[in-house]
Simulated scan of single mutants.
Amino acid sequence: MAKRVQLVLSKDISKLGRAGDLVEVAPGYARNYLLPQGLAVHTTPGILKQVERRREEERQRLLEQKREAETVKAALEKAGRFSISKQVGENDAIFGTVTDREVVEIIANVTGHEIDRRGVTVPDIHKLGSYKVDIKLHPEVTATVDVQVVALK
């Protein structure tokens, strides 16, 4: 069986890797497709150093994003309870529902932190009361805030 060839990808290739990744492929695949198309280059000590440097930069960037997410989580928990006013009908039922956009807007007004609404998980809210809302700030950092739904005066 032929040995594998080590290459560094120049472009993203589905099911193989992203640009800058170090991959091992069959020699025929490398010789007949990846190298002639300019999708990969042979590894050299200099290129391996570049790959390691890029990995370290990416790791540092991800750590910084996690630190920022934890800072925002601390600010949200410090702010405590957020209050949303809604028009009320009979039996404390609200007209409509509380949406993720409303939650993001009230958080931005109170804390000044912009949050991606796609990371906000709002339970079904159809009555006045206090509810827990989960906010995913980072793949490893999730904040839970209290949202108080009160009657519009």
Rank of each mutant, 00 (worst) to 15 (best):
R53Y: 12
K78N: 06
D146A: 10
E90T: 12
G129Y: 11
P45E: 06
P45I: 00
K49V: 10
R61G: 00
T121K: 15
E64I: 03
I106E: 15
G89S: 10
A75P: 01
T97L: 07
G46A: 15
V25Y: 08
P27L: 09
G28A: 14
I47Q: 10
R31T: 13
V72H: 01
K3E: 11
P27E: 08
V149T: 02
P27G: 12
E64G: 04
V120K: 10
I125K: 02
K15A: 12
T97Y: 11
E70T: 05
L9V: 09
K153F: 05
E52Y: 09
L9Q: 07
R118H: 12
V51D: 00
N109I: 00
T43F: 00
L76Q: 02
G129E: 07
E52C: 07
I84T: 09
D12N: 15
V141L: 03
G20M: 12
V88S: 08
L34S: 03
G119K: 03
A143R: 00
R67V: 13
R117E: 05
V25M: 08
V8N: 02
L76M: 03
K15C: 06
R117D: 01
P27F: 11
S10K: 14
Q87Y: 00
P45N: 10
K153S: 13
L62K: 14
P139N: 10
A75H: 08
L63W: 02
K66A: 12
K127I: 00
D21V: 01
I115D: 00
V122P: 03
V41A: 13
G80V: 03
E56Q: 14
A143K: 00
Q37S: 09
R118S: 06
S83T: 14
K78D: 10
G38N: 09
S10T: 14
E56V: 12
K78I: 01
V41P: 00
Q60Y: 09
V8Q: 06
A75W: 02
V150Q: 09
R101S: 13
K127P: 00
N91P: 01
I94E: 06
A75C: 06
L48W: 08
P123F: 08
V23P: 05
L48A: 10
A2D: 13
I125Q: 03
V98N: 05
R61L: 12
A19W: 09
N32V: 08
K86H: 04
L34G: 04
N32R: 13
Y131T: 01
A93K: 15
H138V: 06
D134C: 00
T43D: 01
G129I: 09
A108H: 12
A69S: 04
K3I: 04
A79C: 07
E68R: 15
V150C: 00
P123Y: 06
R53S: 13
F82H: 02
Y29A: 04
L137T: 03
L7H: 07
T111C: 13
V98P: 06
T111I: 07
V104N: 02
P27T: 08
A151Y: 04
V133H: 00
Q87C: 03
E70D: 05
A79Y: 01
